[in-house]
Simulated assay, not measured.
Amino acid sequence: MATTRTRPAASSERGLHADTLDKYDDLNEPIPTEEQESLLRELKTKNDASNYIYRFAILLMIVLVFVLYLTPIPSYIDGTHPENHLTLFHHGMHVVGTEDHLTYLPAFPIYLIFFGFQGYLLYLSAIELLSLMGHDQAVGILTRRNPAHYRAHPFGTAPSYLVSILSDIRYSTGNKPNLHERADQPATIGGQSKALYDSLSNPRLLYLWALFVAGWPLPLLIFGAGNFGNAGWFAVTPVVVGVLLMSETMIRRSENALLGLDGMKYDHKSA
């Protein structure tokens, strides 16, 4: 007696992402240009909204650090701060040091000088952030200048005395030369060198790099003097500026990627 085998019926169940894949399964239907432009506008709108949130969070961080630097001032004025005076022990090498060689310096004026320098860097960073967020009116109020003044150069809200310095900076990528390579052949540029070059080639990012570097000498000087607590206290400024620099670098990369996507034309949804 012959037996017949029946083939199992094809499963009618659809996959989890079947509906999504169906949208990109029409290879013969080109995407209209209007639809592509609409998608790009939607991406740009979402990108701008997220960038505004990131910048606002960093601006709030800068304001909090500035307020943090103001907190010791009342105790300095009242004379109740633990480090109200700095002790300087100075005498000649041929003289045995005694209590007469101790010099007590008031710490409050020194703190004001240090706070003024680091606070000025925070102020410049906040002004640049407000400009990037599109609040030109607030920039004009804080700087008492017409916002159009800063459009005369590509370095954002950089002060006039920094514009000439930033304009003279030249940076080129290059790797360590190998002895077996010919000198007349172009050197291969690594990914890290190219990323750093892309960051420094942007004028506004170069300005943020200048603020980031300018914030380190003071805490390093205090650290070298042996006052590690105050060194960490004033190192908060370059750390915050570094967060701003890293955030703006990532924002520039996303904007460049979106700009490159805008210049590409796809004929099919599967592309």
Rank of each mutant, 00 (worst) to 15 (best):
R5K: 11
T6K: 07
P8K: 13
S12C: 05
H17T: 14
L21M: 10
D22H: 04
Y24G: 11
N28I: 08
N28H: 12
E29N: 13
P30E: 08
P30H: 06
I31Q: 09
T33E: 12
E34M: 11
L39Y: 04
L39Q: 10
L39A: 12
K46S: 13
N51I: 12
N51M: 13
Y52T: 14
Y54I: 14
Y54Q: 15
F56G: 09
F56E: 12
A57G: 12
L60N: 14
M61H: 15
F66K: 09
L70T: 08
T71W: 07
P72N: 03
P72T: 03
I73W: 00
P74G: 03
P74T: 07
S75E: 09
E83D: 12
N84M: 05
N84A: 06
L86C: 00
L86R: 10
T87V: 15
L88V: 14
L88W: 06
L88P: 02
G97P: 01
G97E: 11
T98L: 05
E99H: 00
D100N: 06
H101W: 11
L102P: 03
Y104I: 09
A107G: 04
F108W: 05
P109R: 12
I110G: 02
L112Y: 01
F114A: 15
F117A: 04
Q118N: 05
G119P: 01
L121W: 05
L121T: 03
L122P: 04
S125R: 01
S125Y: 02
L129N: 09
S131H: 08
L132E: 13
G140L: 02
R144C: 14
N146E: 08
P147C: 05
P147V: 10
P147Y: 06
A152Q: 13
A152Y: 03
A152M: 11
H153I: 10
H153G: 08
A158V: 05
P159S: 11
P159R: 13
S160D: 14
L162F: 04
P177G: 03
N178T: 05
N178D: 10
D184R: 07
D184A: 06
P186T: 03
T188F: 07
A195P: 00
L196S: 10
N202Q: 06
L208M: 14
A210S: 12
A210M: 11
L211F: 01
L211H: 01
A214F: 06
W216M: 07
W216I: 06
L218A: 02
L218M: 07
L218G: 01
F223N: 00
A225W: 01
F228K: 02
G229Y: 10
N230Y: 13
N230I: 00
A231R: 03
F234L: 07
A235V: 06
V236E: 02
V236D: 02
V241C: 01
L245P: 10
M246H: 09
M246A: 14
M250Y: 10
M250Q: 13
E255K: 13
N256I: 07
N256S: 12
N256H: 12
G260W: 05
L261V: 11
M264A: 11
Y266Q: 01
H268W: 08
K269M: 10
S270W: 07
S270I: 04
